[in-house]
Design a binder for these strands. Structure first.
Length: 154
DNA sequence: GCCAACGTTGGC
DNA sequence: GCCAACGTTGGC
C-alpha cells in the first residue's frame, strides 16, 4: 500500500517533458523543513503527482514514483551554488532529497482551477488550502483517486 | 519567548 | 507586477 504525494515544480526549471525524457531525477534543493520531513517519510514505490506551478495554468501533469528513499541533499554543500547552506556538514547534512522517476502519463492535464472546482478536494486537499505553498506534500488516497478520476474524464 | 522585519512562494 | 501568506532571522 503506497503512500501518495505531490511534488511542485516550475516547468521552466524542471518540467514534466524533461522528466519523461530523462526518466528519473534527484529531487534536490528543497529548503523547507516540513517538505524535507515529508521526503524523510517516503518509501520506495510511493507515488506522487507532478505539479506545475508558477505558470498561467498551474496543475497536475503526470505521475512519478519514488525510486530512492531520502538521502543527504549534496547541493547544500556546493559552495556558491543556488542551494548552498553553510550550516550543512557531513555529520549533519540538514537537507535531504529523494529520487523520483517517470511512472505514468495521465490522460488529461488537471488544472488547479479544476481541482478547486471539486467540492470534496476543495474541502480537504492541502494544495488548495489558503496560503498553502508546501513544495512537497502528502495526498490522501481519497484525493488521489478523485484526481485520477478527473484526469480520466474527457 | 515574543514579534517585527525580511525574503520567498505562487496564484492571480 | 501585485500582494497575501508563510517561514526564518535576530534584537530585545
Amino acid at each position: 500500500m503506497p503512500n501518495y504525494w505531490l511534488f511542485k515544480t516550475e516547468p521552466e526549471t524542471f518540467g514534466w517533458e524533461r522528466l519523461k525524457r530523462e526518466g528519473r531525477t534527484e529531487w534536490s534543493g528543497v529548503r523547507n523543513y516540513q517538505a524535507r520531513n515529508h521526503m524523510l517519510s517516503m518509501k520506495l514505490g510511493d507515488l506522487g503527482f507532478f505539479y506545475h506551478s508558477s505558470i498561467p495554468e498551474p496543475g497536475i501533469a503526470g505521475i512519478v514514483r519514488v525510486v530512492r528513499e531520502a538521502y543527504p541533499d549534496f547541493t547544500a554543500r556546493v559552495r556558491g551554488g543556488d542551494y548552498y547552506d553553510p550550516r550543512a556538514t557531513d555529520a549533519n547534512p540538514i537537507w535531504q532529497m529523494v529520487d523520483v522517476a517517470y511512472e505514468a502519463e495521465i490522460p488529461r492535464y488537471v488544472s488547479l482551477a479544476e481541482l478547486r472546482g471539486n467540492v470534496a478536494l476543495a474541502a480537504t486537499m492541502l494544495l488548495l488550502k489558503r496560503g498553502s505553498r508546501l513544495s512537497v506534500q502528502p495526498v490522501h488516497v481519497r484525493e488521489w483517486k478523485i484526481i485520477l478520476d478527473l484526469a480520466g474524464r474527457p
